[in-house]
């Protein structure tokens, strides 16, 4: 008698369990990996690369525009009379690899790069807390030899003298829906520098972050610090930029203030001349427009659809 009494509560519990949480019967959700998305609105913070790549099969047309300096006076309409532009195209070869190139009016430069994500932060299914990407870029100036700033007197105009390179590691994390932060240690290599005292390699580290103000507007900021004791850098400043990302459908508009004139890494990191705190600030904007050229999942979807209607 005693043992039957003991089992009574167990029996009562069984039907209750059955009704309450049916999905619980399936056990834990399968741990499909969910990568963190939208750390930044676009692939650039302002001038620098962000943690994000363009998606596989997507072409991103980028227009970068910097006006003159705010402190250039009313005669120059506070900089609005002048313009520096970069037109660029980026393409996502896979979810991890993107390539791009651009043409800048700054020193009439053509630049190209590849960016690869080695580690991807994920929300579920793995324990990766950060995203880590590497960027390798190259630029060539097409200026007339007499105008290339580092050629000076009596230097031979070899094609290789017009080249420079950029290597960067981008490591960062989307800490919350609104806050993302990244660090960018890197090196700029210049095949030729203005003076023998200037090293060809320029070590630098950048930091950038974004804070989302609303679903469609974010505040971005970035700073590049060139490590000391690397030649005479008295004519140059560290690059500081801040501004807003505004997203509208297929476009992202970035409006910002920066002391950098150029829009590719060597120009931004190594050749920023303006002093932000002296009013040498450019008002500028970037416009990004994406086009889906190729839908990598289309085949898989159609196959599944066919299998379902067939079966």
């Amino acid at each position: 008698m005693r043992s039957s009494f003991l089992f009574l509560p167990v029996l009562l519990a069984v039907p209750a369990l059955a009704q309450d949480d049916l999905l619980g019967l399936l056990g834990e959700d399968s741990a499909a990996t969910e990568y963190t998305i939208a750390s930044f609105k676009t692939t650039r913070v302002i001038n620098s690369h962000s943690l994000e790549n363009v998606a596989h099969g997507v072409l991103d047309f980028k227009i970068g525009h910097r006006f003159g300096m705010l402190n250039s006076g009313a005669g120059e309409l506070f900089g609005l009379d002048q313009a520096t532009i970069r037109l660029g195209l980026d393409y996502g070869i896979s979810e991890k690899l993107m390539i791009g190139f651009g043409r800048s009016s700054f020193q009439k430069t053509i630049d190209g790069f590849a960016k690869y994500k080695l580690l991807r932060q994920c929300d579920q299914g793995c324990n990766m807390p950060i995203t880590l990407g590497v960027v390798a870029g190259m630029s060539v100036t097409t200026l007339d030899a007499s105008k290339v700033p580092w050629f000076g007197e009596g230097r031979t105009d070899y094609f290789t003298h017009r080249l420079s390179y950029n290597f960067q590691v981008i490591v960062g994390r989307k800490f919350s829906e609104s806050l993302t932060f990244q660090l960018m240690p890197g090196v700029i290599h210049r095949n030729l520098t203005a003076s023998a005292k200037d090293p060809n390699d320029l070590m630098n580290i950048g930091a950038a972050g974004r804070f989302k103000l609303t679903k469609r507007v974010a505040l971005n900021s970035e700073y590049f610090y060139v490590l000391p004791n690397q030649g005479d850098r008295s004519a140059f400043q560290n690059s500081l930029s801040m501004g807003f990302d505004i997203e509208t459908g297929g476009h992202v508009f970035q409006l910002h203030f920066t002391n950098s004139t150029g829009m590719f890494e060597r120009a931004v990191i190594a050749e920023t001349g303006g002093d932000f705190f002296n009013g040498d600030i450019h008002y500028g904007f970037n416009i990004s427009r994406v086009f889906t050229l190729h839908d990598p999942k289309k085949k898989a979807r159609e196959k599944l659809k066919a299998a379902q209607t067939g079966g």
Partner: peptide, 29 residues
């Protein structure tokens, strides 16, 4: 394609759950 569901024909109870991030679109954006 990864919705989970349990249907208890005896009681008629039905439950669904679906992860929002699992929805696939034609365009990544």
């Amino acid at each position: 394609h990864k919705a989970t569901s349990v249907f208890d024909a005896t009681t008629g109870a039905m439950e669904f759950a679906v992860l929002i991030k699992g929805f696939e679109f034609e365009k990544a954006l």
